[in-house]
């Protein structure tokens, strides 16, 4: 079932030192866990580190979130939400 979230937060960590992408993502997921758990928020991480796409999907997926990765030009967009992610939001 696809539902709509109300808010989108976008965090750009392109070019940052390893493992800033994963640490920043975990910090932001914990910081916004209430809104994420109610399905009101979708968190988008922009990164150019392809290892992060794997590590974030594993780590955040294990926390019970839905994670989607999309290649957008020279970076990746990693979308995190509690509910199935609706790309039309």
């Amino acid at each position: 079932m696809i539902e709509k979230t109300n808010q989108l937060i976008e965090i750009n960590v392109c070019g940052q030192i390893c493992p800033s992408t994963l640490l920043t993502t975990l910090r932001e997921v914990n910081k916004h866990r209430k809104l994420l758990s109610t399905g009101e928020l979708c968190l988008d991480i922009l990164t150019d580190n392809h290892d992060s796409t794997i590590r974030i999907c594993e780590a955040v997926g294990n926390m019970g979130y839905n994670v989607e990765v999309a290649e957008q030009g020279n970076y990746y967009r990693i979308s995190i939400a509690k509910i199935a992610i609706n790309k039309s939001l």
């Binding site: 070019g15 940052q16 030192i17 150019d48 392809h50 030009g73 020279n74 970076y75």
Partner: peptide, 18 residues
């Protein structure tokens, strides 16, 4: 792979650490 990037808005503490 179309992933050659040069980003210059990196936090200075990260550059110092490197």
């Amino acid at each position: 792979m179309k992933k050659f990037n040069c980003h210059f808005n990196i936090p200075p503490v990260q550059l110092l650490s490197a």
